[in-house]
Amino acid sequence: MKLLCVCGLGQGTSLILRMNVEQVLSELGIAADVEHTDVSSASSMDADFIVTNRELADSLAGVNAKIIIVNNYFDRVEIKNALVENLK
């Protein structure tokens, strides 16, 4: 399973999201490949899931990956709920 964490530039925000997603996945005992990138590269990358926020989700319409929306990148409870909801 591969998750892609996406932000506008692929520099800061997506990396923060990735670190929190990885932590949540390990708490859940789920093994997955997690990467981060910018929104323009994301559409050409293979992934099962894309984690991003509502602002960028619109730019990703048309990708094959299932999109998981997270509004607060620092709220691991929200991230956990979003992942559990979508990965089940």
Partner: peptide
């Protein structure tokens, strides 16, 4: 970046984290 990519960097309620490369 804000003009091109929009306000996605408002990462949490009330908190914006603008940045570039």
């Amino acid at each position: 970046s804000y003009k091109n990519n929009g306000p996605y960097f408002v990462l949490a309620p009330q908190v914006a984290l603008p940045h570039a490369r």
